[in-house]
Amino acid sequence: MTTPPDPDPGRSLRLGRRIVLAVPFLWLLALFLTPFLIVARMSLSDTARALPPYAPHWEGFGRLGEFLAALDLENYALLASDTLYLAAYLSSVRLAAISTILALVVAFPLAYAMARAPRRWQPALLVAVILPFWTSFLIRIYAWIGILRPEGFLDVVVQALGLADAPLGLLNTDAAVVLGMVYSYLPFMVLPIYAALERIDRSLLEAAADLGSPPWKSFWTVTVPLAAPGIVAGCLLVFIPAIGEFVIPDLLGGPDTLMIGKVLWTEFFSNRDWPLSSAVAIVLLAVLLLPLLVFQRALRRGEGAR
């Protein structure tokens, strides 16, 4: 044997692939990690009458020691000690979870009907789902104020139908916030579920029927498991923005509506407490990471299904 064989002929190929993969990773690093680090560093600072309104400020490597010494976990301690924040997080998770479940309940039949509709109708149905996005989000939320306000559209309809004689008083309640969030994020739920359902081979349902499974049972044993990636993606796409939502609770919520997005806004803008609001944001990120990890695991488990 004169020339030793190349121990790994695929190596250069893999290197090339690795470089290709590195590009989006670098983007992620630049666009996500950098702002994250800035926020994280801010959360370790203290408020100060300064520009920008926190201390310490970066003054070069020469004073690195002083800089690091001035950072502390005080803001996190405050978050932990004041039950308001815990209450706000829990309330946000609760409202976001309720909204997500309701959105799923509304979106699944919608997506199902779309996926089962004649193929030539499907583009039109898709457009109909996306259509509301062509109007400003803010305007649509204001429209809900018009619908929910006392003597508003909803009251007029309900009273005309004789279902109630007093105003429902939905505006400025948690119910209105949930309604607003379900409405606003519904397309994010519908689209991935539709995409998953649409991909399901119809012969699978025929096979299930052929093997003796009644339609309702096939729905749970075949349709739902195969739509699971879409359902999970939809839930995340609704849950994650909902948990940090600010505008909807601000406009549709009442004084009882406690949401972390609003707390963050207040800390940042009204109280000018950038470090504390940064800490709120970092903790929020940690709260959000949990469902993401669950999704990752679900994906890995479902990998074999494709």
Partner: peptide, 10 residues
């Protein structure tokens, strides 16, 4: 601020 937040959220 704390007092006010408590007032608002009850």
């Amino acid at each position: 601020n704390r007092m006010w937040t408590r007032v608002k959220t009850g």
